[in-house]
Amino acid sequence: MAVVTSGPTQLEIRGVSKSFGGVQAVSRVSVDVQKGQILSIIGPNGAGKTTLLNCISSVFHPETGTIVLEGQDLTRLSPARVAGRGIARTFQNIALFRGMTVVDNLMLGRHIHMKNGVLRSMLYWGPGRREEVEHRRVVEDIIDFLEIEAIRKRPVGSLPYGLQKRVELGRALALHPKVLLLDEPMGGTNHEEKEDMARFILDVNDEWGTTIILIEHDMGVVMDISQHVVVLDLGEKIAEGTPAEVKAHPQVIKAYLGTKATV
């Protein structure tokens, strides 16, 4: 299944380190992400996968190293600016706006593309209203794509977990990002939801050519949908390559299964 497309490098992660107190969460990790790739980051709990994602989206700033998107340095930018450069993400423990409807959550994904200032918003007339409608159309396309038409007016907090995951993906997609970061998009969902999500991820990649960086624990899914796999353990990159290469890598087997007990 894994077809290696070696496009130009779109996102360059160079020697990124981040520590919390005495714990080195990520140490000197470098990854090259190619345009249009589905790249999975795997590793045991506490390997630093989410921290790496947080560094990319500027939730934390790395202590050393740089993150460069299409030749532009993102390392010291604020999270809002990183979003403006075309990086969107979802969270491990869903971070939707619970009091708002599905449509409004997705409309927030369009926030950076909208220009309505205070005055236009106050009037909600002419150009102000046109812009709202125009972006609503984009959002409706995504609603259509994710098959969530029936719940568009429901407050997000009242939706079941699997659907919330889908809405969160929709919010990230509404940004029309260049790079999409997904932190365990299938965590805590059932088999059917997992299949749906995998299908959406592949479709997004296919239809818009979006680069996707994915953290996932379900090895079956990872091996099936990703073209490139990066393995982290205790904050360090121990292996990377195609799914098949990674699966056979001795250090990966060691990290996941432990060393053979010597009798």
Binding site: S57, V59, S78, P79, F91, A95, L96, F97, G99, L175
Partner: peptide
Amino acid sequence: DRDIAAEIIG
């Protein structure tokens, strides 16, 4: 509702 998520989407 979620200030971190708000920042992340711009």
